[in-house]
Design a protein around this nucleic acid. Sequence first.
DNA 1: AGTGTCACTTACATCTATGTAGATATCGTC
DNA 2: GACGATATCTACATAGATGTAAGTGACACT
Lengths: 204, 204
Amino acid sequence: MSIRDEAVVEIPKRRRRAPDEARREALVVARRLLIESGPTAITLKAVGDKIGVTHANLIHHFGSAAGLQSALMESMVRDLADALDAAVNQLRSDAGAPRALVDAVFDAFDRGGAGRLAAWIALSGDLQHLEPVRAAVQDLVKAIDEKFSAEGEQTHNRITSAVLFIALCAFGDAVIGAPLRDMLDRDEDSGRKIVARLLPSFLL
Amino acid sequence: MSIRDEAVVEIPKRRRRAPDEARREALVVARRLLIESGPTAITLKAVGDKIGVTHANLIHHFGSAAGLQSALMESMVRDLADALDAAVNQLRSDAGAPRALVDAVFDAFDRGGAGRLAAWIALSGDLQHLEPVRAAVQDLVKAIDEKFSAEGEQTHNRITSAVLFIALCAFGDAVIGAPLRDMLDRDEDSGRKIVARLLPSFLL
DNA sequence: AGTGTCACTTACATCTATGTAGATATCGTC
DNA sequence: GACGATATCTACATAGATGTAAGTGACACT
C-alpha cells in the first residue's frame, strides 16, 4: 500500500445529514454569527459556508431565510426559557441566597446570547417570538413567591416588581453592560453585586 | 386672471436645500425609521423617498450609506448626551428628588429612541460611537456626587453604582420594558417607580 | 444488488441596496 | 439678466441575498 493509495480515502462528495441534524448544525452557526457579528451577519450563504452546505440547501430545510431566522429565535428563546426554569428549580430546591438567584437570571441572559437575541427581536418588532418566555417569567414569579412570601396581599406586587427589576438589569447588563462598566471604571461583576444587594428589599 | 392661470403657480421641479438642512431632514426621517421599523429599514431609498430626494443625493450628502448611519448614530448619541446633561443640570439646580432624576434618565433613553439606538450600536459592534456618552455619564456621576455626597471614601463607589444601576434599568426599560411589563401585568410606570424607590439606598 | 426517497448541488433568475458618471436645474452673486 | 457653484437628477453598473427548477447521489430498505 503506497502513500499515494492512502491519500484516496473515499471522501464522499456530499455528506447526507438527517434533517434534524442539519437544522441543528445550521442553528448553532447562526447563533454564533448573531452573537459575534450581529443580526445582519446571518445570511444563508454565511451559515451555509460554515457548515459546508449551499444556501439553497438551507432554504430546503428552513423554507426561506425568514424561516431560518424564526427557527433561530425560537431555539434561542427556548434556551432562555429553559435557563429561567433552571433558575426556578434551583430556587425551589435549596439555595435561596439572593446572589444565587441573580446569577441564575444574569446567566440566562448572558449565556448563548439571549440578551442580544431579545434586543434583536425587540428592534425588529417580532415580539410574538418572545411569547414562550412569558410562561417562564410567570413561573419565576411563582417560585419566588413560594420561597420568600411571608404573607399579606402586597406580596404578589412585590414579587413581580422584583422579577421586573432583575430582568431589566440582567438584560441591560448583557447588552450594554460591558461598555457601560468601562465608562464607570467598574469591574465585570458590578451589575450582579448591585442587584443582589438590592434584592432583599423586595423579598423581606 | 383666469382660474387656469392660477393653476400655473411656478412649482420648481427640484427643491434646492442648504446642505445642512438636507442632512437634517434626512436624519430626522432616518431616526423615525430606526424607531418604528428597526435598523434594517434605514436604506438610502427609504430615507430619500420620505424627503423627496433620490438615493444618489443622499450619497452626495453623506458620502455613503455607512456615512448616513454614522451621522445618525452621532446625532442620536449627541441627543442622549444632551439629555443626560440636562438631567445633571436639573440635579445641580434644585429638585433633588430621586424620582426627578430617574425620570430624567429614563426619558433620556426613551425619547428619541436612544435606547433602541444603543441596542443597535451594541449589536452591530460599532461601540466607538458610544464614546461621546462617556463624558455625559461621568458628568452625571460628578453631579450626583456634589449633590448627595456627605463624605467618606466609599462615596464615589456608591455613586458609580447608582449610575450603573439607573442606566441599566433605563436602557432595559426602553428596549424590552413594554413586553416585559405586559408579561408581568404591570403598568407603564412600574420600572421608574421601582428604580426611584431603590435609589435612596445608594445615596443616603 | 436493486430501488426509491430526499438531502444536496448546480445553474439560473430576481430583487434590492449601493455606488458612479455625467447631465441638469436652482440659487446666490455680480 | 448673466454666471458660477453645486444640489439634484437620470441612467447605468455592480454585488449580494434570496429564491426556483432540475438534476445527482447518499443511504435505508428490500
